[in-house]
Write a protein that binds this DNA or RNA. Structure first.
Lengths: 325, 325
DNA sequence: GCACTTTACGTAAACGTTTACAATGGCTAT
DNA sequence: ATAGCCATTGTAAACGTTTACGTAAAGTGC
């Protein structure tokens, strides 16, 4: 049996209250002598705090729950890195609940699991909530914050890149390189996707460029998506494509090369994300680069009630996948 | 205030024991009528079980803790996918504790966090334990299992690919294509690394090929590692390299291309892992492909006390990065 | 040496469940 | 009618902590 504070108390000849005080380092509420004795015995017995009991009585954990989708892109690592660092410096632990592959059911499950324990906040990374999820979250009284995704409601916490702006920047970059027929590939049909469509359309409109319906192709941000979508663009005569993620861009690129299309001369691609994938691909992918680490850091701040921005700035990283026309 | 079973009991005019029995669906220990009434009221009040309390009394959670390193390779997603699926089917939840970037301190922290709550098992994904970690784990009485890494002690649970065999296969593949001067790039200096060195040396020895010391280069499985290591190989005249991970392979490959070295004609690379990175790279990387999903599934089985193999089979996926000499 | 404050510690309640055991009442078999 | 049994429900202890409150002893100022 694992030792409890009661065991320590018995051995030390003090009450459990004193042991508790010592172990919680409650400043000056016990004598140095008692402190030393208790600490020594605790160590001898290999005592380890039972956090379950602590949480039960405190009704507040020191744990931030992060719910992530297994998005087929690889930026989550950076976000979690930021979350972890900042959580640590605020004395919080991090647990990650995995919501499967955009499965609404597993997603719901994950939120329930989070709510079923004493938690200081919930971070939803790239999670599109459905009606039921929202009801659950709002009814629970636990702070929650969307990460790398935002709804258009300002009473709901979120930290993300500005999707409208990201797509606007990407599209403008292509326009600046002389492209007039520009596609948008791989976005989803929910918030992020439609925000990016807005930015894309805005850039096109500002330059009096028409947008044809089949220049916008939905997908799921995955490599497979990109691979598939290139074929769909063949008939459209676009000269440049804004890819919804590095993975989509890589898919487009490789499919193009298989078809003998020269990159970037016959087709330019600009990617959104800017992870290491951009360097691995050949030619290296020019990207709108998101600062995922900072997104992670600020999301912790926000969910813990500190001041934090909604939008984290992005920038364009020039590589070799966009040609001047 | 969140409603508790006591609130439900009051409203329903029954005792908390009955409510508990109904909510836990304890078969036939209550009447259908009471069951319906309690369930209805619970729903009305938006009751949600407090798992903290449950765990405290049961002293056993239904949670598997997964500790992962932010390995700069991307296979963890697949492992976790497998873990998640199998855990689900065994009625277990999964929480993931992030051990930072091979930081011994954070790693220790993560193990402590896991042990501080009632948990059914600990899965350590690609974690190299140090002395202290092992003492902690062994002393805790909680089952634990290494995943995608194994020590050479058969009383310690693990599920992994056979590293010796993986390196042996990879090396043999290059030898089979006529290579005689073969490097090994990016392995670590711990268990996995030395197991792979063994396999590599064995294959070379079986074909009466000498191994020069500077054909083996240590690294950390990252893209940056690969990028850097290519330079170190320049003076060695190896014609083929076994890369310790897809990321290392991608780094080697891109560095080579920057130096104007033709792949695969002037340099062949075979990668270990076989994730999507192999397809993204150009030329596509031939790999020893690991079955990460199954590794995840079986690690859950093992840590839950079911029968499960130590080694999960691998296979070679032929792509375009190895040339015949 | 008195009143008062401070220090150090103990007592016991509380957190929200589960569950062993007891109690009740109705039913069955004789 | 009686004993016995079963189904259903209640009572209360237990899980391992924290903490409000109380109290005894020691210290302080006069």
């Amino acid at each position: 049996m694992k030792p409890t504070i009661k065991d320590i108390a018995d051995k030390a000849g003090v009450s459990i209250a004193t042991v508790s005080r010592v172990l919680a380092s409650k400043g000056d509420s016990y004598s140095k002598k008692t402190g030393r004795k208790v600490l020594k015995i605790a160590k001898e017995m290999g005592y380890r705090k039972n956090n379950t009991a602590v949480e039960l009585v405190k009704k507040k954990g020191n744990v931030i729950a992060v719910i992530i989708n297994a998005t087929p892109t690889n930026f989550s690592t950076q976000i979690i890195d930021g979350i972890q660092k900042q959580a640590n410096s605020l004395g919080q632990h991090v647990i990650i609940l995995y919501a499967g592959n955009r499965s609404p059911e597993l997603q719901h499950q994950a939120i329930l699991t989070a709510l079923e324990r004493a938690i200081s906040g919930i971070l939803l990374v790239a999670i599109e909530p459905d009606q039921e999820d929202m009801k659950l979250l709002e009814g629970a009284g636990t702070p929650f914050c969307f990460v790398s995704l935002y709804l258009e409601q300002n009473n709901i916490l979120a930290v993300s890149s500005n999707n409208r702006d990201v797509a606007y920047q990407a599209t403008n970059y292509l326009i600046g390189h002389g492209h007039k027929k520009i596609g948008l590939a791989g976005i989803d049909q929910y918030h992020t996707g439609s925000q990016r469509i807005d930015g894309y359309r805005l850039a096109m409109k500002e330059h009096q460029l028409d947008v044809e319906d089949d220049w916008i192709k939905l997908g799921d941000y995955s490599y497979a998506s990109g691979l598939k979508l290139l074929g769909d663009f063949l008939s459209t005569r676009v000269t440049g494509i804004v890819a919804a993620s590095d993975m989509v861009a890589a898919g487009l690129l490789n499919a193009a090369q298989q078809k003998g299309i020269q990159l970037p001369d016959q087709l330019s691609i600009i990617s959104i994300d800017g992870t290491v994938i951009c360097q691995i691909a050949t030619p290296a992918l020019t990207s709108v680069t998101q600062d995922f680490y900072t997104i992670g850091v600020e999301s912790v701040n926000k969910v813990m009630g500190k001041k934090a921005p909604l939008f984290i700035p992005t920038h364009i990283t020039k590589r070799s996948s966009v040609a001047e026309i």
